[in-house]
């Protein structure tokens, strides 16, 4: 399998490469549009600040390439956020994003001093959809090809280890039709932990640093039918 990890000076790509390596997969770190177009799977990591990331993408001409891709594509953290329309992050009024998914990225506004920003640490996923999250979820149940009508996990069911992934972010995408996984911060306010439009998937959490749960999601991304 041909895996491309997009290199645009967008932060810590090494961890993504190592995570793939632990799954026995070799990936190509590249900013070459032809290599990216020819890959079976495309990973789009991102860390840092939105406006500088967009500047780097434009400089590499990738802002024109990414929306034309047709193979399964996974944006990670800032790489997910960049798929949206606009972010509050950035100088003077925020940053125009790639516009591939219909969400606007906004900053967390903590209700009290106990809620810190960044939202940093392990949080549980809920309302999981699509085969990207197969094998996860409370009580170890599989989440097969589900649709948006799937009933959410019963609130009485306490999250298990299989629900937790690692987040570090100060901005988030609200929940919408494009949402395929949710997490909540504060506890009663859900946000998009996963998004999808066609072949374009994104996760807000660090799939490459989320222990065995992250490895399962990465494995799903490489093997599941995500078309």
């Amino acid at each position: 399998m041909n895996i491309a990890v997009i290199d645009y000076q967008g932060g810590n790509v090494q961890s993504v490469l190592f995570a793939l390596e632990r799954l026995g997969m070799n990936a190509t770190l590249t900013s070459d549009p032809d290599v990216i177009r020819g890959a079976d799977r495309v990973l789009f990591p991102g860390e840092g600040e939105a406006s500088s990331a967009m500047r780097a993408l434009r400089a590499a001409g990738l802002d024109k390439v990414l929306p034309t891709l047709t193979q399964p594509f996974l944006g990670i953290c800032l790489g997910m956020q960049l798929l949206g329309r606009h972010s509050q992050e950035g100088p003077a009024g925020g940053t125009e994003l790639l516009g591939m998914l219909p969400f606007d990225v906004v900053r967390f506004t903590p209700p009290d001093a106990a809620h810190k920003v960044p939202h940093m640490g392990w949080n549980n996923l809920h309302d999981l959809q699509t085969p990207l999250f197969a094998g996860l979820g409370s009580a170890g149940e599989l989440n097969p090809q589900s649709d948006s009508n799937q009933a959410p996990v019963a609130p009485s069911l306490l999250p298990t280890a299989a629900d937790y992934v690692y987040f570090v972010h100060s901005y988030y995408a609200p929940v919408g039709d494009y949402t395929i996984a949710q997490a909540s911060y504060p506890a009663e306010v859900p946000f998009s932990a996963g998004v999808r439009y066609r072949n374009f998937y994104g996760v807000q959490f660090h799939v490459e640093k989320s222990g065995p749960v992250g490895e399962q999601i990465l494995k799903n991304f490489l093997t599941a039918d995500l078309a």
Partner: peptide
């Protein structure tokens, strides 16, 4: 750091 990052799947 490289060796830890290669082996360890948490931050």
């Amino acid at each position: 750091v490289r060796n830890v990052a290669r082996e360890v799947n948490i931050p």
